[in-house]
Every structure is written in structure tokens, then in C-alpha cells.
Design a protein around this nucleic acid. Structure first.
Length: 259
DNA sequence: ATGGTAGACCTTCTA
């Protein structure tokens, strides 16, 4: 089973490109981020025509996440379930029932810039809230895939020009520390586990010729419970999608589980 | 050292 994550930077502005990739890559499950629309404006029919079930947690103008699956999606949960409240739509979770149940979450972690604004503490708090939820899910001892745009560069090797990112909310020591704390609950980074090579990035900025200079970073991740990690057979980054017409600034990242 | 691009949407915010 192939499970993908892709920050599409507006699903409606990019529908043609997104559908083209779905037809070519045929993911079983796809987690989308930054759909940038409310639930009613999500182009569900277009995905249903390709055989997908659709679960959406949208928001006007910004953020918004979705999950598409060829198998039914059960026990759908929108937002982190800690009662803290969140006016950003950044989390949706569901159980993909077949062939073996696997719980999947589509995550759009806050960017956090600029770091001297309240956006940065919001980011750190959000990682903490995600960690609390992950701890509860791990206790279930089930196959679990937490995938999405984490807006975290975990290590120097995950940036072509790490010096450019010093002090940035995506690479600050505090950010990386919070991300490590999440992983150390017992989650496995699927990319590293599958021996993903340094220099494999998932994001290139639109500005300053970042793509042409390969000024990329790896910020889209899949974190696996032990029960999911045991089933991991491979990963792939669909780098060429960045060179298509009207691309997102992120490319799809796909993991393969032996389910 | 600065500005560079893209999307939503109405004017500036977010990334």
C-alpha cells in the first residue's frame, strides 16, 4: 500500500496538476495540506471519479488538510483532540480499514516565522500538542502513520544550504529539539529508515530561483509507529513534479507499506 | 543587503 503526503498550495488553483499526479502515481492513500479552501469548496467529485473516498478539514483562505483513500476511511477525527481549540485547520486523522487497518494522519504543522512573533510559540505548542496525541496513539500498539508538512528541517543534511536556515523557525535548535522529542516517543522517520540519501528534498521555494539552484529542504515527513515501521518496504520523493507547469513548492513524498 | 514568487481575495496576509 502506497501512502503519500503532498502540500499542494491550494487544491483548486492546482487541481489539474494534482489530478495528473494522482493518475500517474495511483497512491492508495494521499494526505494533502494547504488545500486553502473550506470543506464545501473542496473538489471532492474530481477525486471520487478516480475512485477515492474523501475526508476534509478545510478553512477559508489558509491551511486546510484532507485525506483521500481508495479504501473507506473510518473514525475520522478533525483537529487535535485535546480540547485546546485551534482556529487553524491543520490535522485530520482516520483509519484506513483495508486490507489491514492502519491509522493515518494528515498534518500541516505551523511554519512559525517570524520567530519574534507569536507564530513561533504557537508552532512549538502545536508540536507539543501533537506529541501528546502521538503518545496516546502509540499506546494502542497499532500501525500508525503520521505524515504531512512538518515545517521542520531535522538535520543539516536535510538542507542544501543549511547556513541559509540558521535562526529560521524551520531549523532553530528549539524546533529540532521538539521534533526529536516527538520521534523519541517511539516513532520512526520512514525516509531515514529506508536509507533515503542526503540531498533528497521535498520543498523548493518559489523565490530567488531556489529550484534552479537546488536550494531545497526536506520538511515533509512520515513518522511511523513500530507496528507500521515493521511493514515499511520503501519510500520515494517525486522530485520531477517540481518541474511541471504551475507546480506546488512541495513535491509528493510516498511510503510503501507491506499491508 | 535586499528581494525575489505564489495564492487567496479585496489590500494585505501567509508562506
Amino acid at each position: 500500500m502506497r501512502i503519500a503526503t503532498w502540500n499542494v498550495n491550494s487544491v483548486n488553483a492546482r487541481l489539474e496538476t494534482v489530478l495528473r499526479w494522482f493518475e500517474e502515481a495511483k497512491p492508495d492513500v494521499a494526505c494533502l495540506q494547504e488545500i486553502k479552501c473550506v470543506d464545501e469548496k473542496f473538489p471532492a467529485e474530481a477525486f471520487e471519479r478516480l475512485g477515492y473516498n474523501v475526508a476534509v478539514h478545510g478553512q477559508k483562505s489558509y491551511n486546510g488538510v484532507a485525506m483521500l483513500s481508495k479504501h473507506p476511511i473510518e473514525d475520522i477525527r478533525r483537529g487535535l483532540p485535546d480540547g485546546e481549540g485551534d482556529d487553524h485547520a491543520r490535522y485530520i486523522e482516520g483509519i484506513i480499514g483495508a486490507p489491514t487497518p492502519v491509522r493515518v494522519a494528515s498534518i500541516y504543522l505551523p511554519n512559525g516565522n517570524p520567530v519574534d512573533s507569536d507564530k513561533y510559540p504557537y508552532k512549538l505548542r502545536w508540536i507539543d500538542r501533537l506529541s501528546n496525541h502521538a503518545r496516546e496513539l502509540l499506546a494502542l500498539e497499532e500501525p500508525l502513520v503520521l505524515t504531512g508538512d512538518y515545517n521542520v528541517i531535522p538535520e543539516e543534511r536535510d538542507a542544501e544550504f543549511p547556513k541559509n536556515w540558521e535562526g529560521d523557525a524551520l531549523f532553530r535548535p528549539q524546533t529540532r529539539e521538539a521534533f526529536r522529542a516527538l520521534k523519541y516517543l517511539g516513532l520512526t522517520d520512514a525516509f531515514l529508515e529506508a536509507d533515503g540519501a542526503p540531498g533528497a528534498y521535498t520543498f523548493w521555494d518559489y523565490q530567488a530561483g531556489a529550484w534552479q539552484r537546488n536550494n531545497g529542504i526536506r520538511i515533509d515527513h512520515a513518522l511511523l509507529s513500530p507496528q507500521a515501521a515493521d511493514l515499511l518496504t520503501g519510500v520515494s520523493i517525486h522530485r520531477d513534479v517540481r518541474s511541471w507547469e504551475k507546480p506546488s513548492d512541495h513535491v509528493p513524498f510516498v511510503i510503501e507499506l507491506d499491508l
